[in-house]
Design a protein around this nucleic acid. Structure first.
Length: 892
RNA sequence: GGGCGUGUAGCUCAGUGGGAGAGCACUACGUUGACAUCGUAGGGGUCGCUGGUUCAAUCCCAGCCACGCCCACCA
């Protein structure tokens, strides 16, 4: 018995538990050993994360594909797992420690890492349970973590391999230094923020020329303490006489050369630019070109160090800025201060201004690795959907910079490098191996020190598509499921993640012919979910819509369907609550349709044959089901989730519920047992196809109904296990199609006229068809009962003229007369008919214009011309009938 | 400074080289026992602007305007 209402929240948890118990999420299900594999690796959520709308969309789309392919019989593996999220996780635990009045430094490295693991086992990974609420059918038995033993082994092997190939190396150069987190970060982790600042113009005295100054402009006055040159453009005539001279750096007294360099832009500032090679990426290059001294003036927290005059030592960089400006002002060396808008780099985790800082770090030679990754996409080995993202990928890959992979953190994969007393580097699997290497090198035992740094989190994420499948071991899963089929992700991590997986996958993995193999065949890039007004959701704006809240209120199915229905390619999703509510109503609608079927004893029969049905309505609906299933299938195959959802929605609501169920009501309450039996079986069969068709989008309610609508006998297996994807063919019957469409049109015509003439729905009318054609007479024979019931007609007769005072309506091309008790308002009736006629006349006029154009007739394809002729004939016939009807109205 | 995307009904969005669509909102009517989380009918758009290509443009091309995003070392 199906309850009157569907309480999603209560049932979903129970359904999910039953799915998990059944083991049906697992890959390699019995009977599918020989099936074609289908593989998706999940974008691993951060272990610190909780489900936000982006996750909801991302995982809904994956789950739709995974359930779809599972139902199509493929051997599906949706590989789940989490990312250790180096900086984010370390910050969480450090904040906890801070609350306890402790620091990681007091605690020590080993104890701290232990503490993080403890945190992870207790409160890490809540997002996994949230994904389950969403309905994600991952193979949870294979859940992995980027820091687990297997994946750590993959990281180790990759690092060592790349190191020996010269593709990982150490280098001393400027990095983006986060003075709050005290670590280097990569270019991608720096956000450029537009800021209202100032442009300070300082006058530096030129040595040996009393009263001569060279003016430089800067947005960062404090860095002048580290200046080692002033640069001007070689062609800048204002300064040619000063090139080669020395300036005297105020406050410091250092003599610094005035050099000519193309970097100086005569249009900018004063045309002369101060050069601080140790604290600016451009200046660093200038410094290299002119062999300038590089003076590091900051410590790791961006406070001034001992390289600056005593008065400034220990000052924070922003304090120092004020002091420098004040002191220069006191010396009369500030020429002017302009308001200035410029971009300032912030660390995206620490949230403070990053400092270009000279340190030694580990780098990956990304330029070399990028070449095969570019070629693979050029060849089409990996395809982006939508294709436009390939340009973004190419642009970045073709200008790729060395990837700084070392982080001065504790939580992460510690770099497998040991240093000998003379600085010799030994990259090894472990300490024992490193010691052996050192012994060989030095000829005796010497103490080694391990590199304290860890790797960028994205280094391990880059290996995800193969490390999770068991690599470096040669597991059956790796052989069977790499390369994966499709990666589903947001555009915001194309650089962070997709590009790096491409590089690492191609470099580390080979196919059976020994050729480099891409990690995935397709990359589907989905939209960003914004709020209703198009704003990016953010904590600071307070406009976050919590998917869990929506799941609580409307059920996971409603949210999933909404996200799928709005996931059109190439456009962001502005999520409106009303939309979720609308699709919740759709869930209810489906529920009630199933209730109707149950109440009418529509039970599926084992020997049902959709090809040998008698009743036209039944022949018609199986054809409609075929069309719908094809629409949905094709849309899903093309990653057109919105079309797939929309196609299913229209079929279920506007075809099955609105028409089919209404059309079969008279049959089910009739007295022809054969018709009743066939119709019950058909309705049940269609409902089953509908549940299957909707299951990828709305897994819970479809599963529940699947169980509730089983036949009276033994309960059947879950939909998840038993149902296969509807593959329907050869069910469209053109006669039934034409007949039912005529019937629907006729019913709508009568309803429309009733409504316009304000005839209450309760009033039963008789319809007289005037001089119907033979075809219409035949249809009437078959469908009279249906027509009468749905149009609320007490009888339908055939007449050879229009009775006095009747409302006239066009049923197809046949005039129908609806006599009304009272005298009709001639003026209203005239206006109604007139409006229809005008509409048709306008249409005909447009078509005529085309048909009288010789160019059109000569150049348009025949079928288009033919189509226009048909349209005109149809419209003209209807217009003529209506004009005749108008003519029959009494004058006045 | 480069690059990309978007502009269609009041709102959120589909869509197509040849008859402008959906959901929500709105209006009128309606409990004919699946469903008021509903039903029936209806109103509402010069498809951002200007040119071009074409027999034909909302759709293709160019320019412009507006909004958004990404990348970039501009003192």
């Amino acid at each position: 018995m199906i309850d009157k209402t569907y309480d999603a929240a209560v049932r979903e948890a129970r359904i999910y538990a039953s799915w998990e118990d059944s083991g049906a999420f697992g890959h390699a299900r019995p009977g599918r050993e020989a099936a074609e594999p289908f593989t998706i690796v999940i974008p691993p959520p951060n272990v610190t994360g909780s489900l936000h709308m982006g996750h909801a969309l991302n995982n809904t789309l994956q789950d739709i594909l995974v359930r779809f392919e599972r139902m199509r019989g493929r051997d599906v593996l949706w590989q789940p797992g989490m990312d250790h999220a180096g900086i984010a996780t370390q910050m969480v635990v450090e904040r906890q420690l801070d609350g306890e009045g402790m620091s990681r430094h007091e605690m020590g490295r080993d104890a701290f890492i232990q503490r993080v693991w403890t945190w992870k086992s207790h409160s890490g990974g809540t997002i996994i349970n949230q994904l389950k609420r969403l309905g994600a059918s991952c193979d949870w038995s294979r859940e992995r973590f980027t820091m687990d033993a297997g994946l750590s082994q993959a990281v180790l092997k990759t690092f060592i391999t790349l190191y020996h190939q010269g593709l990982i190396y150490k280098d001393k150069r400027l990095v983006n230094w986060d003075p709050k987190l005290l670590t280097a970060i990569s270019d991608l982790e720096v956000q450029q923020v537009e800021t209202n600042g100032h442009l300070w113009h300082f006058r530096y005295p030129v040595e040996g020329r009393d009263g001569t100054f060279i003016t430089v402009a800067t947005t960062r006055p404090e860095t002048m303490l580290g200046d080692t040159a002033v640069a001007v453009h070689p062609d800048d005539e204002r300064y040619t006489h000063l090139v080669g001279k020395m300036a005297v750096l105020p406050l410091v007294g250092r003599r610094i050369p005035i050099v000519a360099d193309d970097y100086a832009d005569p249009e900018q500032g004063s045309g002369a630019v101060k050069i601080t090679p140790a604290h600016d990426f451009n200046d660093f290059e200038v410094g290299r070109r002119h062999d300038l001294e590089m003076i590091n003036i900051f410590d790791e927290r961006a406070a001034l160090n001992d390289a600056v005059p005593e008065a400034y030592r220990g000052l924070d960089r922003f304090e120092a800025r004020k002091r420098v400006v004040a002191d220069l002002e006191a010396l009369g060396l500030v020429e002017k201060i302009d308001e200035h808008v410029h971009t300032v780099p912030y660390g995206d985790r620490g949230g403070v201004v990053i400092e270009p800082w000279l340190t030694e770090q580990w780098y990956v030679d990304a330029a070399t690795l990028s070449k095969p990754a570019i070629e693979a996409v050029e060849r089409g080995d990996t395809v982006f959907v939508p294709k436009a993202w390939e340009k973004t990928y190419f642009d970045w890959m073709r200008n790729i910079q060395p990837w700084c992979i070392s982080r001065q953190l504790w939580w992460g994969h510690q770099i497998p490098a040991w240093y000998g007393p003379d600085g010799e580097v030994f990259v090894a699997e472990d300490e024992v191996e490193a010691a052996a290497m050192a012994r060989k090198h030095y000829g005796d035992d010497r103490p080694l020190e391990r590199d304290p740094d860890v790797l960028d989190t994205w280094f391990s994420s880059a290996l995800w598509p193969f490390s999770t499948l068991g690599w470096p071991d040669e597991t059956p899963e790796l052989a069977r499921h790499y390369k994966t089929d499709v990666l589903i992700t947001g555009f915001d991590i194309i650089f962070f993640w997709v590009a790096r997986m491409m590089m690492m996958g191609l470099h580390m993995m080979k196919d059976e012919d020994g050729k480099p193999e891409v990690p995935f065949h397709t990359v589907y890039i989905h939209a960003l979910v914004r709020d209703e007004t198009g704003q990016k959701m953010s904590k600071s704006k307070g406009n976050i819509i919590d998917p869990l809240e929506l799941i609580d209120e409307y059920g996971a199915d409603s949210l999933r369907f909404t996200l799928a229905a709005m996931a059109a390619q190439g456009r962001d999703i502005k999520l409106a609550r009303s939309r979720v509510e609308g699709y919740r109503n759709f869930v209810t609608k489906l529920w009630n349709a199933a209730r109707f079927c149950e109440m009418n004893a529509c039970v599926r029969t084992a020997d049902f044959d959709a090809r040998s049905l008698e009743l036209p309505v039944n022949r018609w609906i199986v054809g409609e089901a075929e069309k719908a299933s094809k629409t949905v299938t094709e849309a899903l195959e093309a990653y057109r989730f919105n079309d797939a959802a929309g196609g299913a929605y229209r079929f279920v609501w506007h075809v099955f519920c609105d028409w089919y169920l209404e059309l079969i009501k008279p049959v089910l309450t009739g007295d022809d047992q054969a018709e009743i039996d066939e119709t019950r079986a058909t309705a049940a069969w269609i409902l089953d196809r509908i549940l299957a068709l909707l299951h990828p989008f709305m897994p819970y309610v479809t599963e529940e109904l699947w169980g509730l609508t089983g036949e009276a006998g033994p309960a059947r297996e879950t939909l998840l296990i038993e149902a296969s994807w509807p593959v329907l063919d050869g069910l469209v019957d053109s006669t039934a199609d034409a007949d039912i469409n005529w019937l629907i049109e006729a019913i709508m015509a009568v309803r429309s006229v009733r409504s316009e003439m304000n005839i209450p729905p309760s009033a039963e009318l008789t319809l007289a068809l005037v001089d119907p054609s033979e075809g219409v007479r035949q249809r009437l024979n078959t469908y009279e009962a249906l027509f009468r019931r749905l149009a609320r007609l007490s009888s339908i007769t055939i007449a050879d003229g229009v009775p006095e005072g009747a409302i006239q309506v066009l049923v197809g091309e046949t005039v129908g007369a609806l006599p009304v008790a009272d005298v009709i308002d001639i003026a209203v009736e005239r206006a109604r008919l007139d409006k229809e006629i005008q509409k048709l006349a306008k249409e005909i006029e447009g078509i005529d214009k085309k048909l009288s154009n010789d160019q059109f007739l000569a150049k348009a394809p025949d079928h288009v011309v033919e189509q226009q002729h048909e349209r005109k004939a149809d419209a003209a016939a209807r217009r003529d009938k209506l004009e005749a009807a108008l003519g029959r109205l009494p004058v006045g």
